[in-house]
Amino acid sequence: MLKFIVRRALWTIPVVLLVVFMTFVMMRQIKGNPFQVTERAVPVSIQRNLDRKYHLNKPWYTQYLYYVKGVFTADLGPSLVQRNQGVNDIIKEHFPVSLKLGGLAMLWAVVFGIPLGIIAALKQNSVFDYAVMTVVNSGYAIPNFLIATLLIYFFALKWRAYTPFPTNGWGGPSSWVLPAIALGHAPMTFFARIVRGSMLETLQQDYIRTAKAKGLRWRRVVGLHVLRNSLIPAVTAAAPLLGFLITGSFIVETIFGIPGIGKYFVTSVTGRDYSVTMGITIMLSLIIIVANLVVDILYGYLDPRTRDVRT
């Protein structure tokens, strides 16, 4: 297992290099000047000063080498737009916020999604099952900006006399609830569906029939045999999902005015803030790589059959 982890960790280096290279090339292909923010033209001599300061006057391969060197010395460079901030500062300040938001959304999704799926499967074709599936299916189709807007309208405005939730901001726990629900809603419905589906499949298995036949109590059959085997797909989906929840929360962050990193994914591209785009892309790719690694390791534990092949 250790050998496997080390090998996978070493593999991240060429992957990151490739990501850096591709992002670098793509960013330079988009037209637009990072230094022209408004319609005001940037005079030629000032553009020259700016290009010199940010090494943009050098050939692209020199810029690329500068950048790669920076990445390996953990210096992601200065932001071209937020003039007093470096990319390291931006990530250090805003990533923890997104991490917390993503984590809370994940918590919401797991705590509600998995039990809903389990109960729906156990009571298949009951009123409860139909109710859950209706909510889940329609919920999956509703985009999170609509859910966010509805949550704000009802819980932060209409009923604000009875609820503690603010319309926006990222302060104490009361401000975490609505954004976490808005962001966690879609994964919650996802978990409910995936768990219900795999539970139903497991319940049809021969070994469940055997367990029942040998007189095991139903509770024990579900707890020991059904659940353990049904949760594998949910677990494997969870890790990359967490990665996307942490980094893909742009819309929810914007609607709730949350100072997370998700916003920078979008604004750095529209603002042509090359170094910020690159820095966040590297961070995202690292998260996805680590998440996939975790999944592979978990897989080995949950399903012993896969272990030998991989080590």
């Binding site: 932060a156 405005l157 603010p166 319309t167 926006n168 901001g169 609607i255 709730f256 005015g257």
Partner: peptide, 18 residues
């Protein structure tokens, strides 16, 4: 000075008295 980028978010904060 809360930094609120989105117009609707700011409007909601104003309505809520924040």
């Amino acid at each position: 000075m809360p930094i609120i980028v989105d117009g609707t978010t700011a409007e909601n904060a104003f309505r809520a008295g924040n």
